[in-house]
Design a protein around this nucleic acid. Sequence first.
DNA 1: ATCGATAGGAAACTAACTTAACAATCACCG
DNA 2: CGGTGATTGTTAAGTTAGTTTCCTATCGAT
Lengths: 396, 396
Amino acid sequence: MTVVAGGASAARPQLIRAINEQVLLDHIRRSGPVSRTELARLSGLSKPTVSAALSTIERAGLVHATGQRTGVPGPAAQLYEVRPEAGFVLGLDVGREFLRGAVADLAGNVRSRMNLRTKAADATARIQELSDLAGTLAAEAGIKPEQLTQTVLGSPGVYDARLDALTLTGRLSGWDSPATLAALRDRFGPSLIIENDIDAAALAERVHGHGRDVDSFAFVSVGTGIGMGLVLDGKLRHGSHGVAGEIGYLPFTEGSGSDPRDARKRGGFDASASAAAVVRAARRAGVRASSAEKVFAAAARGDAVAAAVVAEEALLVAKAICTVITVVDPELIVLGGGIGQAAGFLEAVIGQLRHLAPVLPDVQASVLGADSVVAGCIAAGLDQAWNQLVARSPAI
Amino acid sequence: MTVVAGGASAARPQLIRAINEQVLLDHIRRSGPVSRTELARLSGLSKPTVSAALSTIERAGLVHATGQRTGVPGPAAQLYEVRPEAGFVLGLDVGREFLRGAVADLAGNVRSRMNLRTKAADATARIQELSDLAGTLAAEAGIKPEQLTQTVLGSPGVYDARLDALTLTGRLSGWDSPATLAALRDRFGPSLIIENDIDAAALAERVHGHGRDVDSFAFVSVGTGIGMGLVLDGKLRHGSHGVAGEIGYLPFTEGSGSDPRDARKRGGFDASASAAAVVRAARRAGVRASSAEKVFAAAARGDAVAAAVVAEEALLVAKAICTVITVVDPELIVLGGGIGQAAGFLEAVIGQLRHLAPVLPDVQASVLGADSVVAGCIAAGLDQAWNQLVARSPAI
DNA sequence: ATCGATAGGAAACTAACTTAACAATCACCG
DNA sequence: CGGTGATTGTTAAGTTAGTTTCCTATCGAT
């Protein structure tokens, strides 16, 4: 977490206190239960300063004393930790087939989690299902819905400020209407944040996956749809219109499975390389397969024609990654999605990339599962909730 | 300019002073001669604080009293301004045909400027020419070479930390040898910064061109070579390996002028869309032209075949820009370079972009000329010199 | 020539942090 | 089983900053 003393504005002594309280909170969040003296060591601040700042944030309800550590010479050290009940975060993931969700406390512990297959046919029914899911999750977590300080919804599409609606929502019918967004806001209140689902997965990757140790990476997801989440300098980049990472719109049209109608609706690269395009390419090549999964399985069994289709897909994905490298040159590329995480696909992509890209960054396949969007939403919500609480805390 | 109180490190009261001194310097740089009272108004600090901080930076030699303002009731106000002689910046631009350079003082006034056609055949001779140019520029500026606090060289290629050399230097023979970099460092001293030439042009665009009012834009240069400078959140992005913006390596190979040898050496898109590729495409189409300029001129005169070649080039460039939009979604795209700034080309590109990109950002043609690389180097050098001086000033 | 506005500084006070010293506590060892 | 030494957290004094309030000197305008 970075503390920025805004643009060209002058600083008061109070700023020091604000920064130091954030630093201490950060250390407590990361290191779990710690004593004042340890905090002094970690932060470099003096013991009296740590005591003073800590008592402020304790009074604000963000941390609390939680036990003593003995075993070493000297008095038992009083340990402090984040007060988990200071806030709760709801993370939701709305997809075409599944709804997923979880509730976590401020310490990041998941209190309840649930996935369900959607039966909704339109946006209204979908919102009702989300609403019911939220209620169930809160109840299971043992809290009242009002205690949710932050709700983050991972959804296909991006927010368009001009229309005040989601756009590019892909296969989710009715989801791009302004009424849908209004209904969501109405139901989930002002704390609702809507994050692109793949961006949320990238955040999960940043917190729990390969992105942990680097501060700039691209999460490239290839599956039913295609997209990317871009983390630069540790921060998710949405772009000026929210479309950063919409690599489905890369102007590639050469794939043999490309469908011109798809190209108009979801972008050239999506039409050439999504799961549906793999199936189309396979059929054109004479492989009978009802899903991309089966094409990959056939290739793995040694079907030469299917293998050629897979190789072609790997080349397309390598080209997309090459594009990302030439534009922003991230430290790491994480491949995700049904196709991206398929066995052997990573190696095939790297093999192609070697011939295309000016440099070869670290490329890894994601190890996170289907819950990653929810996990990313929770992570985003926790950060947001922390900022809210810290900003609201009286000393600052 | 943004003041960042670094990552997870604690703050001391001295930080306040450091921030405020920077804020004051910033205001003085921007507003020219100002009085203490005006600074207090501008910064929001109290008069005593402004006086105290100002006397520190005056003692450090960064600003000086420069006159009085009368005409209003009350005592004459003592005005302060940046002390131009507190530092001098040398900006250099090394290209295959031309060397350009300028010397500016800390206030940003250009004290000397010179362009010359290079006669050098190899790297050693080129460095000698640069060295001579630097000497001449310093003499013309009326300063000794030791007074140059910062030197910035705009050069093709990017720095590769693994090799400790420049790479991807394109058409500049011998320029990618470690010995070249060592010789440059030896000649220009530790203050030397080497910036990719197109990145430098992007910086010029940020300071003097269309990028002034936005904080994220891409400068796309299409000419003899192809490249991009990416400014996100007001800062130039080099990428993890320095190759951010090397869009010559975009994996496009469809252009009719594409040359497979070039594709290996300088990337697929460069081979398809650089000036040389335009000439190749024109010849293949039956237009006799010795340069891209002449192809564009023929198209402007109404030659239908040349016009088709130009239209094809516009489509390629639009695809590259579409790529940039889908990856980072900047607020603005600035088109530069011999082809990018050609009459009517901007409109042709926008026309194509409309059909490709998920959103259409502001797209403009650069209005800066050949000196933009030097201007960008000067701008980068001034910022760097300021940071150095401020960091070195005793109070911080 | 006087009035009122303005520049700049001085004194007193508030907000933070640091160092140094100290009291209290606990493990460990002879 | 009591002394020794390490360790925790606090108190007191001093330093660095910034603010508010008041004051004096100055200059244009009436």
